[in-house]
């Protein structure tokens, strides 16, 4: 038989109290160790891709992240969508109105890109979503080469597609 209710209730209370203490300690430790990251995320300063992945070493300028809502507003304000994925992916399907500038071909194609796109135009770079660092890395390069308003749409192609927004390309 199970224990009488009078005996199990304090035990249950103690169990829950201990569980709450564990959670509180873990939250305190986790938030203390990662205070800057969490603060930056909630004030919109962090991007998912770590800066250490860029090839440009000590460049201090990083592109700001934008979310889908803001992407719409920026496009309405004349922003240019830039697809950082491979050309084949771009040909298959890309965000409506996007131009292709794959990270892997940036050296060959950047001059042509610069001659077509004014440095002060807002540029929104995307690739394959949060796990993909290419848009961030391309953003760092474009900032270093003189483009002034470079943003990264971290949700990228998957978020746009899943939101049912218009795509262009061979697969469409």
């Amino acid at each position: 038989m199970s224990e009488p209710a009078s005996a199990s209730q304090p035990a249950l209370r103690r169990l829950l109290l201990e569980a709450v203490v564990i959670c509180a300690v873990a939250m305190a430790v986790g938030l203390t160790m990662n205070f800057n990251m969490v603060m930056n995320a909630f004030t919109g300063k962090t991007v998912a891709a770590p800066p250490s992945k860029t090839a440009l070493g000590t460049v201090a300028e990083f592109p700001d992240p934008v979310e889908l809502d803001e992407v719409h507003e920026l496009i309405a304000a004349g922003a240019l969508l830039v697809d950082a994925r491979h050309v084949e992916d771009y040909r298959e399907a890309h965000l409506q109105g996007a131009v292709s500038l794959p990270l892997g071909e940036v050296d060959q194609r950047l001059d042509a890109f610069r001659s077509e796109v004014p440095a002060e135009r807002i540029i929104i770079i995307y690739c394959n979503g949060f796990g993909c660092p290419d848009s961030f890395d391309l953003g760092v390069i474009l900032l270093a080469r003189g483009f002034q308003q470079v943003r990264v749409f971290e949700g990228g192609f998957p978020e746009w597609r899943d939101a049912g927004l218009p795509l262009e390309g061979a697969a469409q």
Binding site: A26, M33, N34, M37, F42
Partner: peptide
């Protein structure tokens, strides 16, 4: 980011 800060600890 909040989850990533707390879950590991």
């Amino acid at each position: 980011y909040l989850v990533a800060a707390i879950l590991p600890s």
